Deep mutational scan, measured.
Amino acid sequence: VTLFVALYDYEARTEDDLSFHKGEKFQILNSSEGDWWEARSLTTGETGYIPSNYVAPV
């Protein structure tokens, strides 16, 4: 499993987005949709879409 870490804070803009804080780690569930990836936060357990340019591989 490839994990990603948040480089910046992000505040959700829609109900499908996932808010997160810098340093939070994610498991990517689906990265085939372009710039927005479906991810699960390893901190909160919540699932939603995150901007791929806000995260980097651990």
Rank of each mutant, 00 (worst) to 15 (best):
Pro51Asn: 10
Phe4Ser: 03
Asn30Ala: 08
Asp17Trp: 11
Leu3Ala: 07
Val5Glu: 10
Gly23Lys: 02
Asp35Ile: 09
Ala39Val: 12
Leu29Phe: 08
Thr44Ala: 03
Glu38Ile: 15
Arg40Tyr: 10
Arg40Gln: 12
Val1Tyr: 15
Phe4Arg: 03
Ile28Gly: 01
Ser19His: 05
Ala56Ser: 10
Gly45Phe: 07
Gly45Pro: 01
Leu3Val: 12
Ser19Trp: 03
Leu42Ile: 11
Arg40Cys: 07
Trp37Arg: 02
Ser52Val: 09
Asp17His: 15
His21Pro: 06
Tyr54Gln: 06
Val58Gln: 08
Asp35Ala: 10
Glu33Pro: 11
Glu24His: 08
Asp9Thr: 06
Pro57Val: 09
Gly48Glu: 00
Phe4Val: 11
Val55Ser: 01
Leu42Glu: 08
Leu29Trp: 08
Asp16Pro: 05
Phe4Thr: 03
Leu18Lys: 02
Asp35Tyr: 12
Phe26Asp: 00
Asn30Asp: 12
Phe4Gly: 04
Glu15Leu: 10
Thr43Phe: 10
Thr44Gln: 04
Ala39His: 00
Ser19Cys: 04
Phe20Thr: 03
Val1Thr: 12
Glu11Gly: 06
Ser31Gln: 15
Val58Ala: 10
Gln27Phe: 14
Leu3Glu: 09
Thr2Asp: 12
Ser32Trp: 12
Thr47Lys: 12
Leu3Met: 10
Tyr49Met: 13
Pro51Leu: 09
Thr14His: 15
Gly34Gln: 14
Asp16Ile: 12
Asp16Tyr: 15
Pro57His: 06
Glu38Trp: 14
Asn30Arg: 08
Glu46His: 12
Glu46Trp: 09
Gly48Met: 03
Gly45Arg: 04
Glu24Leu: 01
Tyr8Ile: 07
Trp37Gly: 01
Ser52Asp: 03
Gly45Tyr: 09
Thr44Ser: 14
Arg40Lys: 14
Thr14Lys: 14
Leu42Thr: 08
Ile50Pro: 00
Ala6Ser: 05
Asp16Cys: 07
Lys25Met: 13
Asn30Gln: 08
Val55Tyr: 01
Leu7His: 03
Ala39Asp: 00
Pro51Cys: 07
Ser31Met: 13
Thr43Ala: 12
Arg13Met: 15
Pro57Lys: 09
Thr43Asp: 13
Val5Asn: 03
Trp37Asn: 01
Thr47Gly: 04
Lys22Leu: 06
Arg13Cys: 07
Pro57Ala: 10
Pro51Glu: 02
Asp9Ala: 07
Glu46Lys: 15
Tyr49Trp: 14
Phe26Cys: 01
Thr43Cys: 07
Ser41Arg: 13
Ile50Arg: 00
Asn53Ser: 14
Ile28Met: 04
Glu15Ser: 11
Glu15Lys: 15
Trp37Ala: 03
Glu15Arg: 09
Ser31Asn: 15
Leu29Ile: 13
Leu42Gln: 11
Asp16Gly: 15
Lys22Pro: 04
Glu24Met: 06
Phe4Trp: 10
Leu3Gln: 09
Trp37Pro: 01
Asp17Gln: 14
Pro51Ile: 03
Thr14Leu: 11
Thr44Asp: 04
Pro57Trp: 06
Glu24Ile: 02
Tyr54His: 09
Lys25Phe: 10
Leu42Trp: 09
Ser52Ile: 07
Thr47Ile: 14
Ser19Val: 03
Arg13Ser: 14
Asp9Gln: 05
Ile28Asn: 01
Ser32Pro: 10
Gln27Tyr: 14
Trp37Leu: 08
Gly45Trp: 08
Trp37Met: 06
Pro57Phe: 07
Phe20Asn: 00
Ser41His: 08
Asn30Leu: 07
Leu29Glu: 05
Gly23Arg: 02
Asp17Asn: 10
Asp35Arg: 09
Tyr49Phe: 11
Thr2Asn: 10
Gln27Arg: 08
Phe4Glu: 01
Ser41Leu: 08
Gly34Thr: 12
Thr2Leu: 13
Val55Met: 09
Phe26Lys: 00
Thr44Gly: 03
Arg13Ile: 12
Thr44Phe: 02
Thr2Gln: 14
Glu24Phe: 04
Gly48Lys: 02
Glu11Arg: 10
Leu7Cys: 04
Asp17Lys: 14
Ala12Arg: 09
Glu15Ile: 11
Val1Ala: 14
Ser41Thr: 04
Thr47Phe: 08
Val1His: 14
Phe4Leu: 04
Gly34Leu: 12
Val55Asp: 01
Ile28His: 01
Leu7Pro: 01
Glu33Arg: 12
Glu24Ser: 04
Ser41Asn: 14
Asn53Asp: 13
His21Arg: 15
Ala12Met: 04
Gly45Leu: 08
Trp36Asn: 06
Ser41Cys: 06
Ala56Asn: 06
Ser41Asp: 04
His21Ala: 13
Thr14Val: 07
Asn53Glu: 10
Val1Glu: 15
Phe26Leu: 09
Val5Lys: 04
Leu3Ile: 14
Ala39Phe: 03
Thr14Asp: 13
Thr43Leu: 15
Ser31Glu: 09
Ile28Ser: 02
Val58Arg: 03
Val1Leu: 15
Thr14Met: 15
Asp9Tyr: 04
Lys22Glu: 08
Val5Asp: 02
Leu7Gln: 04
Thr44Ile: 01
Gly23Trp: 05
Ala12Lys: 10
Thr47Cys: 07
Ala39Arg: 00
Asp35Asn: 11
Ala56Asp: 05
Val55Thr: 04
Ala6Cys: 01
Thr43Ser: 13
Ala6Lys: 00
Gly48Ala: 03
Ser19Gln: 05
Asp9Pro: 07
Asp16Ser: 13
Glu38His: 12
Glu24Val: 04
Ala6Gly: 04
Asp16Phe: 15
His21Tyr: 13
Ala56Val: 11
Asn53Cys: 09
Thr47Tyr: 08
Glu46Ile: 11
Leu29Gln: 05
Val55Lys: 01
Asp16Ala: 15
Gly23Glu: 04
Asp9Val: 03
Phe20Glu: 00
Asp17Leu: 09
Thr2Ala: 12
Tyr54Met: 12
Thr14Glu: 10
Gly34Asn: 12
Arg40Ile: 11
Ala12Glu: 04
Leu18Val: 06
Asp16Val: 14
Arg40Gly: 02
Val55Gly: 01
Gly34Asp: 15
Ala6Ile: 01
Phe20Met: 10
Arg13Lys: 12
Asn53Trp: 14
Ser31Gly: 09
Tyr49Asp: 03
Val58Ile: 14
Asn30Cys: 07
Ser32Val: 11
Arg13Gln: 12
Gln27Met: 11
Asp9Phe: 04
Phe4Asn: 01
Phe26Gly: 00
Trp36Gly: 03
